[in-house]
Design a protein around this nucleic acid. Sequence first.
DNA 1: CGGACAATTGAAGCCGGTCAAAACTGGTGG
DNA 2: CCACCAGTTTTGACCGGCTTCAATTGTCCG
Lengths: 232, 232
Amino acid sequence: MLISFLSDSVRPQAEEIFKGLKNQEFHKLIQAGVTHKYKKGEIVFREGGIPSGIYYLSKGHIKKYKFTSSGGEQIFYICGAGELLGYHSVLGGGVYADSAATISDSEITFIPKEAFLNTLASSPEFTLRFMKALGNEFTLFKNAIATRATYSVKERLAINLLILDEKFKKSKRSANGALIILSRTDLANIVGTVKENLVRVLGEFKAKGLIKINNGSIQIINRGGLIKRASL
Amino acid sequence: MLISFLSDSVRPQAEEIFKGLKNQEFHKLIQAGVTHKYKKGEIVFREGGIPSGIYYLSKGHIKKYKFTSSGGEQIFYICGAGELLGYHSVLGGGVYADSAATISDSEITFIPKEAFLNTLASSPEFTLRFMKALGNEFTLFKNAIATRATYSVKERLAINLLILDEKFKKSKRSANGALIILSRTDLANIVGTVKENLVRVLGEFKAKGLIKINNGSIQIINRGGLIKRASL
DNA sequence: CGGACAATTGAAGCCGGTCAAAACTGGTGG
DNA sequence: CCACCAGTTTTGACCGGCTTCAATTGTCCG
């Protein structure tokens, strides 16, 4: 149960999509774009804005979120290197349904709408793979909704730490847990709670030897215990 | 704000998808299928099952849900007549990520996987429209996540009643609110609470003259008040 | 009429949100 | 090198909404 859930949740989408295409349409697409460096905390696109292209994240991490009525933000996805952003809205034809901002220094390639749509129009195989990825992406959202609705804050934090560990591991392979570098506010907005409560639960996990905290960055040291805590 | 949110949330997806195609690929597709009658409460497909086709709901209502760790169910979408189901998993290639069950007597056409995929392969225009619909569908999920995370039970109930009103209105046009026929348990699982709490809030709304309850079926009689309650 | 299930009401307890304040951090300039 | 300041993290106390458990009423059908 956990295995399938986690593999669904952390599947590196863009890489799956372009597996086998990397030498053809994919590289053409990336090369049709312009690459820019972003500092931590910069906004890539804004909810309500008009999409003019899609983004390829070659380095760094990006949070995707919506603003809440009370002024806070609800993060529902963290992008890692190798993933695409913004294609939902380009496909849908409306405005951006969410905002995207870097949470670490990043490198992002902007690919104009036309290049993306042309690739779709000219390559049925590319399109098929893309649709497959979209189909799988829905699973992530369904899981996210079910998780948020069902589990307690403690369980949600455990689940999200396991997911984030996978997300942050990609940059540096190691046997130990990855360094999860994230502000308390951001992590709280991922888990769906307030930062005060998050800190408490984090402290509890630390006291039980599930995680380690250095300089604010979190590291899993007892994956099994965390999985049990998540009661998946 | 409300307007855009509601129109996003209740957009009759399947009809949008096939607008303009209804005389061609769409009807061919439906005719390639077999239509069955379902009684209220029957399961159409199960989480974890292997998809062999997609479904077209020509009459009735269907809930899409996931089972929770504690044995309950979390409903994240109600399908009305004219909508398609099951295409996420057919596209993604994996197993069903959720379950679908009728919540009223329904009529459902099963369309074999091959027919669906062939239509996609043979009609780029059909594919393009379909992808557009998928892009828009992501907006629904993002809204659902943000809503669940941010709003209180009262607000969520108000929002969902407004959405369900649209959903149930289609069967019978009228100026008044539609009759929302739904078990308390199902409604609680949509809103994301327990039935006891749901009943209480429902009673509160009734006492304030926002809704009317006949024989268990709910009818909105003060839309404006409900919108204010939803504080969208 | 009666049995099973759904809906409703009541009471108690806890999780988690809110408010307030202290400790810590990193960056800046004297 | 240290003092200072702004922002972030952490801790503490309080309170209220929601869940949970339990019991009663209502409703549908055989």
